[in-house]
């Protein structure tokens, strides 16, 4: 089906699906974000604050900082850092708009930094695998199915995330790729490693960034269907 319109109005220029898509994205992140705060995020965060070490919060603050850098350049505000032995060894933020490649999520950016670095240092593949198994990821939003899959393919040790992602989440929301089966069938090579996953770390800060982003309007959405909010 093609064009949708309200009678006596001119047709919208876009396809029906594009509109739905955009509305779903924009409304959804509000609502998911609200759900995350009220249900999962808040409880987890309360619980989290008690249990979360100041170290964890420090790293998550750095991830939030990355997300803010994304927001500054009108990217969907997600950021992350990768930590090995208590030190940040890579960071990343969303670059999907800039690259027009919707797979360039914060996690992919940070992982590529390490892969390039380790290649340059002449590490073998098994050493690279060994390194990833000592790394933790701090990311402002639950990794999507693609990124959760990546983390499992790389065999990362542990993941801490901010708000949950009930549209695309791959660490419990939609799929649970962090619990991937470590005993593959028929002696085949396993398709991924499981990793420990903790959500709700500073979830409200992560949510606030999303809200700011969608209130200012997503410039990358397939054509604006509503007027952008006036600049405050």
């Amino acid at each position: 089906m093609g064009v949708a319109y309200k009678n006596s109005e001119t047709p919208f220029n876009t396809t029906l699906a594009d509109q739905r898509l955009y509305i779903q994205i924009s409304n959804h992140l509000f609502s998911s974000v609200r759900v995350a705060v009220t249900l999962k995020g808040f409880e987890l965060e309360r619980e989290g604050v008690k249990m979360t070490s100041s170290e964890t919060l420090t790293f998550m603050e750095l991830a939030i900082h990355q997300a803010k850098l994304a927001l500054d350049v009108l990217e969907v505000p997600v950021g992350c850092v990768i930590v090995e032995d208590g030190k940040v060894i890579a960071s990343g933020r969303n670059r999907t708009t800039e690259t027009r490649n919707a797979t360039r999520h914060a996690e992919m950016e940070a992982v590529d930094v390490l892969l390039v670095q380790w290649q340059k240092n002449g590490l073998s593949m098994s050493e690279v695998a060994e390194n990833f198994s000592n790394c933790s990821l701090y990311v402002t939003c639950e990794p999507c199915i693609m990124c959760a899959s990546v983390l499992s393919i790389l065999g990362i040790k542990e993941v801490f995330y901010g708000c949950s992602n009930d549209k695309f989440g791959g660490c419990g929301s939609i799929l649970s790729l962090h619990l991937s089966n470590s005993t593959p069938l028929n002696n085949e090579v396993s398709s991924g490693k499981s990793f420990k996953c903790t959500g709700g770390i500073m979830a409200s800060e992560a949510v606030l960034l999303f809200r700011t982003f969608y209130e200012q309007g997503n410039p990358n959405a397939p054509k604006p269907h509503r007027s952008l909010a006036p600049q405050a």
């Binding site: 797979t103 992919m108 992982v111 892969l115 290649q119 002449g122 073998s124 593949m125 098994s126 050493e127 690279v128 695998a129 899959s149 990546v150 393919i153 790389l154 065999g155 085949e188 090579v189 396993s190 398709s191 991924g192 490693k193």
Partner: peptide, 26 residues
Amino acid sequence: YPRQWAEQQSHSQSSYYCHPLRHASI
């Protein structure tokens, strides 16, 4: 076999490169 890359034995020379995520679709 997405995890196959990690099972490779280490290789001394550095004339090839490895990127475990560069599947054809990506």
